[in-house]
Design a protein around this nucleic acid. Structure first.
Lengths: 195, 195
DNA sequence: TTGTTTATTGACTCGTCAATCAACAAAAAC
DNA sequence: GTTTTTGTTGATTGACGAGTCAATAAACAA
């Protein structure tokens, strides 16, 4: 049966299965066997391609970040004003894709992992820096020297509102969460007159 | 040797050891044996008093929330103005106690647990509601009908800023995080004039 | 004194799981 | 046509861990 060139296919299937499984269990307490079964192969093969469970996790996290990054980039490209760019970053963060059960799980567990895994922490730092950098760049023409500070605040609020929406009592309301942050943005921009 | 009345002492020791161990490992992948050893007893005794690992976790979470709640209540009692009350809630959330390694770990893992454990989720909802309620009550005299909305935003920003501070690239800077939220509060209050 | 409740543990059961390995199969290279 | 590379798995290893249990012992009650 061995068709050649299986490696990328298998890896991709395993990454998707890892995310799905984390979403299903909620924790990182998922077994390689389960992931492999979901991806339609033996656990031995999973080890063959990834070497360890840990590196499967990291690959999965990288994948989530890549998707998110692509979404942000797409939204930024479609924006045509500074304010539009800031809104793009905010809205991309609250897209339906980010509220799928697996993605929420991945993020929460990513935070846990980032405490102790240097690689996970570095990955998270990259994501955070990029988000702040995008926001600062969008806000600079509008807020000048204060752009940096406001960018950090918006970044924090995005993550906080995401957390609240994802873990709130009722079903997550992404739209409401996005509006919360957008209102803050409006507020901050309206202070531009006080200079 | 059996001195009577050991139960509360043992339970308390186990709860503290659970939190310490979670902080040490970073994950909920801690063993009952390790926790028990840290608390100076056999794992069998831990099971005797708590029945299961899960209920140990919940007790530990409840303990963290209790400490945090007490801190907030104390800060609120010392405040004498509406704005002072809002500041009290914010500052209590960024107290040094909340940035101890174990407490950060507990919170992050709490989030993960809240996805799937109904009891954990309920506990988290109680905490979130109380925080919003405290903020709304403080802001009502200053913002009237908009108090609710702003309270939610501040609550989100507190959690987001906490997350960023706890997992940021460098050592956590609680003061900077608190100031971030305080500035948002100031901004929101300064809009009171626009009515 | 005898029986009951509370405290305590070592030993054990039963299960799970990450990682390895030997072996087999097919394509590609030589 | 043989050797090497790539794909694949069942079986196994080795370790660890949650929860149970029987047994021991002190305090207390009758």
């Amino acid at each position: 049966m061995p068709k050649l060139g299986m490696e990328p296919i298998r890896r991709s299937a395993l990454i998707k299965a890892t995310i799905a499984e984390i979403g299903h269990v909620g924790t990182l307490e998922v077994t390689v066997s389960r992931i492999a079964k979901r991806a339609g192969m033996s656990s031995a093969l999973a080890h063959h391609y990834f070497g360890s469970k840990e590196s499967m996790f990291l690959a999965a996290m990288r994948h989530v970040l890549t998707l998110y990054g692509a979404e942000v980039r797409g939204a930024l490209a479609a924006a045509d004003s500074p304010e539009g760019r800031a809104l793009a970053v905010i809205r991309a963060s609250f897209s339906p894709a980010n509220f799928r059960r697996e993605v929420i799980s991945a993020w929460l567990n990513f935070y846990v992992l980032a405490q102790t895994q240097p690689k996970a922490r570095r990955l998270l730092a990259v994501y955070q820096r990029r988000m702040v950098s995008n926001l600062r760049h969008a806000l600079r023409p509008l807020l000048g020297a204060q752009a940096g500070k406001v960018a950090h605040s918006i970044a924090a609020m995005i993550d906080g509102a995401y957390l609240h929406a994802a873990l709130g009592h009722d079903a997550p309301d992404a739209t409401a969460a996005a509006e919360q942050v957008e209102e803050y943005l409006t507020l901050a921009l309206s202070m531009e007159s006080r200079a």
